[in-house]
């Protein structure tokens, strides 16, 4: 059982290594039209020097809304899990 797990992990490592070998090289991305548009027009359209913030809060605001909602839900879940039970007081 233990040997099977080790063998599976080794096979997975080899799979990842092969995938990294045939991966498109780092440093030369293709299809950058959308990001070039963001870099070129972020300052005039959103007024933010930081293009990442411009994307986060303006172009892709719904992503950030979902992210903030997930954080809110997780914090509420933790507080709810550790609530004081009424009959223990």
């Amino acid at each position: 059982m233990k040997a099977l797990r080790h063998l599976t992990m080794a096979a997975f490592f080899c799979f990842l290594l092969a995938g990294a070998m045939y991966m498109h090289g780092v440093g030369t991305p293709e299809r950058t039209q959308m990001d070039d548009y963001f870099i070129k027009s972020s300052q005039e359209e959103t007024g933010a020097n930081n293009v990442v913030t411009g994307i986060l809060f303006d172009y892709r605001g719904f992503d950030t809304l979902g992210e903030a909602s997930v954080l809110f839900a997780a914090a509420s879940g933790v507080i709810l899990l550790f609530r004081r039970k009424r009959n223990e007081q």
């Binding site: 959103t46 007024g47 933010a48 020097n49 913030t53 411009g54 809060f57 303006d58 950030t64």
Partner: peptide, 8 residues
């Protein structure tokens, strides 16, 4: 600068 971005 930034419009609603600093407030958000």
């Amino acid at each position: 600068t930034g419009g609603v971005i600093p407030i958000m």
